[in-house]
Design a protein around this nucleic acid. Sequence first.
DNA 1: CTAGATTGTCTAGCAGTGCTAGCATCAAGG
DNA 2: CCTTGATGCTAGCACTGCTAGACAATCTAG
Lengths: 184, 184
Amino acid sequence: MPTQSRRERARAERRDLILRTARELAESVGWGAVTTRRLAEAVDYSQPVLYGHFKNMDAIADAVALQGVEELTAAMRTARAAGGLRALAQAYLGYAADHPAVYEAIFVRPTDLSFGTPDSPSPLKDAFEEIRAGVEPFAETDPETLTEVFWSALHGQATLNQTRRLRPSHTQARVDLLITRLTA
Amino acid sequence: MPTQSRRERARAERRDLILRTARELAESVGWGAVTTRRLAEAVDYSQPVLYGHFKNMDAIADAVALQGVEELTAAMRTARAAGGLRALAQAYLGYAADHPAVYEAIFVRPTDLSFGTPDSPSPLKDAFEEIRAGVEPFAETDPETLTEVFWSALHGQATLNQTRRLRPSHTQARVDLLITRLTA
DNA sequence: CTAGATTGTCTAGCAGTGCTAGCATCAAGG
DNA sequence: CCTTGATGCTAGCACTGCTAGACAATCTAG
């Protein structure tokens, strides 16, 4: 039945349109200004349509987050293959800097996504595994913990960079120093 | 004129009441649920009274943040005197864990407070200086950058702990590993 | 002691928020 | 052609931050 599948395709496309638009809106005006009315207007539908695709506004941000974490993982993977842990770190911070709203959706906004548990969404586990693979060569005993420490250090820099709480001129120096010390 | 000063005293007391109440409310229900109506009801005044003391809701959170950063600095100072950088780190993470809403007001919420510039509020500069004093013995060349790196690493752990994105069982192990590597 | 000015406080209201109930419209199937 | 079910809309609720304007309490000056 082409009818059925055409409908489904249309639905999926609209869902994607909502997600893309939410993401663009968030990147340009911040999540705080992404309201159901504005988003609905931007996709040229009425508000209730959004709720036909997502439980609520937070679910939209969560969906953007899942998209984003896959991109982030991919960026880390290619970087690591090319330049090891230092390149991975730069890729991480670069992604956060280039897509602040997406990064916020993944790691800052309160979310229902579960982290660090067996039932976490697999994109999250993949991202963690990618960092783990990066630090593994430098782990003496406990790679899990080193992964968490390294990730936290990156996350701290990413967020404090973003909220302009660190000197912008020294972004690179901070990555270098972190790598130097943690891989000593 | 005792009249004048009595008024001023009453005003200051009320300002303090608002601040204390906002802080308690934030710690118990989160900043998202600290609304002008709820806060006004809690201090037993009407909403406009709040605006007689603070420009807006964000200014209240900023005031709480400034209070909090002074406490945090004090905690780091006594800890450092007793147990060096490791104790300082534990004090930092302990404060963040014990006062999540205050910590959020200081370092996570978007704020007008300026960081890392000459015109930053002095409590913020003091806090930074305290961390700097802690890492100084381990800085080979650039203590400023090491301070930022160390602070970011702590901040990352603090926030990811708080949002339950790290294994709660390994909080201590993460601090230990961070100290071991960064002071090597 | 009274008149006027200042200060403090409240009620009521505006514009905007997330979200939903209920009605209209339209495409597909019998 | 009519029925049925999906699809989308308008309108509305309860909430948000914030403010204008009225009223009362208090202090100042004559």
